[in-house]
Simulated assay, not measured.
Amino acid sequence: MRKAFKLLIGFSVLASLVGCGEKHFLEDKVFAGGVYAPKAALNKGKSIYTEYCMACHGVNGDGHGVAAKGLQVPPRDFTKGVFKFGQVPTGELPHDGDFYKILKEGLHGTAMLPWDLTHDQMFAVVQYIKTFAPAVWEGKDKKLGTAIVVTKDPYGPAHESSAIQRGKEVYHAVANCQSCHRAYVGHKEFSDINLKVNGEKVTDFDPDMYKIKMQETEWGFKSMPPEFTWDFVRSATTVQDLYIRLNAGVGGTAMPSWKDTISDEDVWAVAHYVKYLMDLKNTPARKALMDSISK
């Protein structure tokens, strides 16, 4: 009798939880950019999130799911309304398509895998994720960011070597990417590049120019920028992907948007150079490069 009573109570609690889950959203919402989310879509999104996302991102969307402690790369905290890999300049709100791209492709080198969701399922779960940061997302007055427009690559395959050389120069002497990442040229070449680009030779070298530097983030923990010849670039595999990321930056981190800071042609050049570095992974050419730098 007591066992039957416990079972009855258990089923009653479960039924009430299911019922509450289905009726959690009783009203439609309007998000930034005038995106209209019917209550049915929000409830559907909650169901999808609970099944696929909650283990890592947590019940409250704060990145503290039961699986989070076992992950080297912390899951995103949606409650802050800060997104790393939008296709808009950092600090601006991404478009739904930016979320869809991550859902479909995942993020390289992390536990965020590609998900085989329909367009309707992606729409629903993305709208639900927005409810974790209502002050950021809710309201028809909220504006979406300016989408990065991919221009025509001024180099292309025919001028790949020129693009890589110019990208190397911009990386080391214009954008000074080694201040966060690392340098990929020896002292002499670094000095020669600066003489060509800035009109002066370098004789005093940063002792940390060949080290990756930990960077502060808006999530309360530090992050390690990628070592391009070895680490995954989480949101990029192609030159075009890198062009977008350089223009957009990485939200919530020290990686800024380079749009309108360096020329569009130079953005393309750096994208080609970084892709060249990425392609060195697990090749004899990488070892040769590292050996030449260490001499």
Rank of each mutant, 00 (worst) to 15 (best):
V66P: 13
P114H: 03
Y128C: 04
G33K: 11
V149H: 13
T90E: 10
I48C: 00
P38H: 04
F83D: 00
N60Y: 14
K39C: 07
G109C: 00
D116H: 12
V59D: 14
T131L: 08
A133D: 08
G91E: 01
L107Q: 07
A133V: 08
M54V: 11
M112E: 04
M112Y: 00
G45H: 00
G65I: 01
A37E: 05
F78T: 09
Y49P: 12
T90N: 01
Q87R: 12
A124M: 03
T110W: 10
Y128E: 07
G65C: 02
P94R: 01
G45F: 04
I129K: 12
H57P: 11
G109V: 08
V59M: 15
D116F: 11
F85Y: 12
C53E: 10
R76S: 08
K39G: 04
T151E: 09
A147I: 14
P38E: 00
I148D: 04
D98P: 08
Y100K: 10
L144G: 01
L93N: 02
T110P: 06
W115I: 13
Y100S: 03
V149E: 09
G97K: 10
G106Q: 02
L107T: 04
K84F: 13
I129E: 12
G61Q: 06
A37V: 02
T151Q: 08
E105D: 14
A67L: 14
G106V: 11
D62Q: 05
Y36F: 15
P74S: 02
W137G: 01
P134E: 11
P38K: 13
E51G: 14
H95Y: 08
E51C: 03
K142P: 12
G106W: 05
G34N: 02
G58S: 03
D120C: 01
G97H: 09
G58D: 11
K29W: 06
D141E: 13
I129Y: 09
A135D: 15
L93D: 00
Q72C: 08
A133I: 01
A32R: 09
V66M: 04
H95P: 01
D62P: 07
G139F: 11
P75M: 02
G106F: 10
K142I: 05
N43L: 06
G70L: 12
Y52F: 15
F78A: 02
H108M: 11
M54D: 14
T50S: 15
N60E: 14
K46P: 07
F78L: 12
V149W: 10
